[in-house]
Write a protein that binds this DNA or RNA. Structure first.
Lengths: 209, 209
DNA sequence: GTTTAAATGAAACGAACGTATGAATGAGAC
DNA sequence: GTCTCATTCATACGTTCGTTTCATTTAAAC
């Protein structure tokens, strides 16, 4: 296959290294070395390390956003009031698909998203762009219709719970001790476990006040 | 009040800064400056920056572990088979208590735990010590008795879900747009929301295979 | 008062970092 | 051939980092 251009190679290398060592733990030198490019290539193609990170984040998150949006469109085309379980599937499914358990690339994507979401730097809030905000608001409205008794605040809390469960899936805690013996079908199983877990959680009756 | 000793002042300052800017985003110079101590004090009292982080992590996590352990002891003293809701309360409660929403200190603790759990560095896995492992295994066993149909793998998945929901509570996503208008009672409300959310999730029937 | 050990202070070390600069290289246009 | 412009390259700059060193201070023991 033809080797991709320098810009793409840098994006790939940065995706690997940011996921593995975090934003601050990854140097431009390490990225360009892994990409087989010159040190100055990052400045030339992206402007700065922060803008490179933003490009990496966009490349990871945009397909997820698109799939979430398409899933909701499909649901709403069928009925104006989709059930909770299908909303959960449409919202969490793309997240789980992009980071399947037991898959190396999936673990990397998951770590990358955790890196993005958990970075304390203020600028990290602008890494993802405003596109996902509109998707979230649409799901928020759909969930609000499906869960009429829920206050907006508690609903936001639960939506954040979905994000937490899907994104933090790959944190090492509670992982099987021997990483080598993760069965190959664990990816699909974990996907269904997550849907079960989240559907039950979202469907819980409102907390009585 | 008497000013605490240098060691404690450094621990306090490090707790603030690690939570706010992450491990790599915080310099020893910033810590000692905030603590009003000399730059070399970290090396003298803790040995290195990494060991300082481990001390900070232990100080935050140990009370949570102790409360989790005590809660389970209380439950098991009453009945050998506590219901799921009470197990969730005993396990997640101390986590939520140490990082109440709407409270500045709670937000800091939450961010600190996210920093610890999400740090990609390998050494971060040794920041917390082995004490919490035994607590987790005990809860794992208690949940297994309360949820007899669940496979060990799915149970581990759900336990990780508890951790995710409680720890990631404070990630900015889905936060109210205007941070000033968070009602003061939001802390206690969020606590109950989390218990509701997690109890329903843990009580879900096993995913059919 | 002298001794001793713990604690603090000021200063420096080498290394790694992000970024900027200007020359070299390459391929297509004319 | 030569001009042009996008890209790549080697190199350097200034900063900040964690750590170390060694002198100085402090306070309790004798």
């Amino acid at each position: 296959m033809a080797t991709p251009d320098t810009r793409t190679q840098i994006l790939d290398a940065a995706g690997h290294l940011f996921a593995e060592h975090g934003y601050r733990g990854t140097s431009i030198r390490a990225i360009t070395k892994l990409a087989g490019a010159n040190l100055a290539a990052v400045g030339y193609h992206f402007g700065s390390k922060a803008e490179l990170m933003a490009a990496v984040a966009r490349r990871v998150i945009e397909p997820i956003n698109a799939a979430q949006r398409a899933g909701l469109d499909t649901l709403l085309a069928r009925t104006p009031d989709p059930p909770v379980s299908e909303l959960v599937e449409a919202f969490a499914g793309p997240l789980l698909d992009e980071m399947p358990a037991g898959d190396e690339g999936g673990a990397r994507t998951s770590r990358l998203i955790v890196t993005i979401l958990s970075d304390p730097a203020e600028e990290a809030r602008n890494w993802t762009g405003p596109a996902q905000d509109s998707v979230r608001e649409r799901y928020l409205a759909a969930f609000a219709r499906a869960l009429p008794g829920l206050s907006p605040e508690e609903l936001r809390f639960r939506m954040r719970g979905i994000l937490a469960v899907t994104a933090v899936d790959r944190l090492q805690v509670y992982q099987q001790p021997s990483p080598g013996c993760v069965p190959p079908e664990a990816g699909e199983a974990a996907r269904r476990w997550a849907i079960t877990f989240l559907t039950a959680a979202m469907s819980a009756p409102p907390t009585r006040t």
